[in-house]
Each structure stands twice: as C-alpha cells, then as structure tokens.
C-alpha cells in the first residue's frame, strides 16, 4: 500500500478539513515527539504528553500557515519548542546553569538508579534536566534526532553560531554529568 506523503495529507486537511488525514499525521509523528518531550521534561510523562497534545492542536489550527519549506516534523518540533518554553515560563520554572551542586547530585542519582529497560532513556532525561531549555533542545535535536545545525537553527529560531555554542556547552555539561554512568554496571 502506498503511503500518502505528509504534504499530501496536509493539503487534504487544509482544503477538505479532513480530520482523518490529520489523524494519520499525528500517528506518524506522535511517538517521536512524545519521546523528545519526555527527554525535555526529565521524563515527566504527563507533562510531555500534555505538551505533545497542545503541539498537535496548535499545529492543526495553524496548518494553513504551513509553507512546506521545512519538513513537517521540523515544523512540529518548532511548535513543541515554543509550547515548552511558554510552559516553563508560565510555571516559573526558573532555569539556572548547572552548578557544582546540581552536577554532583545528578551524578549520584544517575549512578544509583535501578536497572530497567528504560534506564538509559530516563537517565538521559534526568541529566538533561540540568541543562537550560535551549541547550537541552539543541543537544537532543543534534545528538538524538541527528538534525543538522541549520535545521536546529530553523526549529529554534536562533542563529547558527548560537546553535553550535549551545550544543558544545550542553555536551560539556552532559559529559561531566554522565561521567559516572556505565551501562555495564547495570547488567
């Protein structure tokens, strides 16, 4: 069976208000987005799913404005990123760069966490919590989603140079956070 492209589905949603086509788009992209948002929220499943839901609702409302210049997934990530930033701003979740204390406590938590199938994902999400939102997003998109600097720049709406700086700083912080993490210890 030939699968309809994202662009074809979007056209169907915009021209014929076809909810089923949007349902297919949701099905296609929801898992990746929900995973990414779990990584962004320290594996807070409820919050991540709420943000993902809001992202798709927002996407549906603004689908007419989708130009098609970027991939649909990138566009979705841009909306999700804005949703996340607004959420953290509203929740007054004040961000500070990783202090020595945070680094230490996170390293201990990571080293002591119990073994399970999701350990790696949860531990990564936990250590990512120490990074400011922008760094967290840039690092995740670069290292996990393997997006180019240019794509990340488009998604986050920041200059290319800033993206590189964010990734380098994020990597540096994560290295020190995850220095004690060893998957072999958990087997």
């Amino acid at each position: 069976m030939l699968l309809a492209s994202d662009q074809a589905l979007i056209e169907r949603v915009v021209t014929a208000d076809c909810h089923d086509s949007f349902g297919i788009l949701v099905e296609r992209h929801q898992s990746d987005l929900r995973y990414s948002l779990r990584q962004m929220t320290g594996w807070n499943e409820a919050l991540a799913d709420d943000l993902a839901q809001e992202t798709f609702i927002q996407a549906f409302k603004s689908l007419k404005n989708y130009q098609g210049t970027a991939k649909f997934s990138s566009w979705i990530y841009r909306i999700a990123y804005n949703q996340m930033v607004s959420h953290f701003r509203l929740a007054r979740n004040r961000e500070v760069s990783a202090s020595e204390e945070i680094l230490k406590s996170h390293s201990q938590q990571i080293a002591l966490s119990t073994t399970s199938e999701l350990d790696l994902h949860r531990d990564l999400a936990d250590s990512m919590k120490a990074l400011p939102t922008k760094q967290r997003m840039a690092v995740h998109l670069h290292l996990h989603r393997e997006l180019t600097h240019s794509e990340i720049s488009t998604i986050m709406g920041i200059p290319l140079g800033t993206v590189k700086t964010l990734i380098n700083r994020g990597k540096k912080t994560l290295r020190s956070l995850l220095s004690s993490w060893n998957p072999e210890d958990k087997l």
């Binding site: 995973y35 993902a52 999701l118």
Partner: peptide, 21 residues
Amino acid sequence: ARNSEPYFSNRRFGSRVLTVI
C-alpha cells in the same frame, strides 16, 4: 538511546487529540 527508542502507542493519544480538535 536512539537505537532503543521506545514506540509510544497512538491509540489513546491520537483519539484524544482529535477529540479536543
């Protein structure tokens, strides 16, 4: 992490999104 990324089922999530819309 990328290679072992879990797939999240769309069953409840997708229907919830469409209902809200």
